[in-house]
Simulated assay, not measured.
Amino acid sequence: MDSIIFDLDGTLWDSTDVVLMAWNEVVEGYQEIENPITKEDLKSIMGLQVKEIGRKLFPSVGEDVQQEILKKCCEIECGYIEKQGGILYDHLEAVLRVLSQKYKLFIVSNCQCGYIEVFLKYHKLENYFTDFENPGRTGLSKGENIKLIMDRNNLKKPVYVGDTEGDRKAAIHAGIPFVYARYGFGEVIEFDHVIDRFDDLLKLF
C-alpha cells in the first residue's frame, strides 16, 4: 500500500448541522417545498451526486427547480462552513499526522468545487493531503475521480476509505480495496476492511 484516499462526509467529519442551516435558508424561499430539510434527510443523501440528491429531497418539483435549489444550496453552504467548520471525528488530526508520515493522503468526495477547500482551510489540514478531487470540478463519477487521482499521482496500491455503499462501488470501479468507516452515515455489508472509529486506521495500517 502506498496511499490512502478518503471520502469526506461521514468519514473525516460531520458537517450536517451547518449544512442544514444553509440549505433550509434556501428552501424557505420556495413555497412549493412544504417541509424543511431534516438532519436525517441530509444523512440519507450523503455520497450521492447532485441529480440523485434533487430527486430524493425535492420529488414534488421538476428537475430544473431541483437543480436550481441545489445550486443555491451548494453556493451558500461553503460560506457557512468557511465561518463555522464542521465536527471532525475524534483524533482526526493526530491520526492524519501519523499516516501522512507513511503514506500519501488524498480526498475524493461527491461535492461541489470549494467544499473540500473550506474543510481543509477552516480546520488547517492542508498540509496532510497531497491532492483531492470532486465531480463539481470534473463532472465525473466518484469511481472515475478516484482513478483520476491515481493516474495524476502515479499511485500503485491505494485504498479507499468511505462510509456508504456508493463509496464501496466507487472503490470497486477503481479496482482498489475498500475500507468501510462504520461510524459514518451509511450501511455497507461487503468490504475489505472495517473501522469503527477513525483512529482504528492506525491499527489497520
Rank of each mutant, 00 (worst) to 15 (best):
S3V: 00
I5Q: 11
F6I: 06
L8D: 00
D9N: 06
D9F: 00
D9L: 02
W13Y: 10
D17V: 06
V18Q: 02
V18P: 00
M21K: 14
E25L: 12
E25Y: 13
V26Q: 04
E28S: 13
Q31S: 13
E34N: 14
E34W: 13
P36A: 08
P36K: 11
D41N: 12
L42I: 11
K43Y: 13
I45W: 09
M46V: 15
G47W: 03
V50R: 09
E52P: 01
G54R: 15
F58I: 04
S60R: 15
S60L: 14
V65N: 08
Q66Y: 04
Q66K: 07
I69C: 05
C74Q: 12
G79T: 10
Y80W: 07
I81W: 06
K83G: 01
Q84M: 13
G86N: 10
I87M: 12
D90S: 09
E93R: 14
L99K: 10
S100T: 13
K104P: 04
K104V: 03
I107M: 05
S109K: 04
C111A: 11
Q112G: 10
E117V: 10
K121L: 02
Y122Q: 12
K124E: 14
L125G: 03
L125F: 11
D131E: 13
E133I: 05
N134W: 09
P135G: 01
G136N: 01
R137G: 08
T138A: 00
L140W: 05
L140I: 00
K142N: 05
K142Y: 09
I149S: 00
M150N: 05
D151A: 13
N153H: 12
N154M: 13
L155V: 01
K157V: 08
P158W: 08
D163S: 10
D163R: 11
G166V: 05
G166A: 06
D167I: 01
R168G: 03
R168V: 03
A170Y: 09
A170S: 15
A171H: 07
I172Q: 13
Y180L: 07
A181D: 01
R182M: 08
Y183N: 00
F185Y: 15
G186N: 09
V188I: 03
F191C: 13
F191G: 02
H193I: 01
V194N: 11
L202Q: 06
L204A: 04
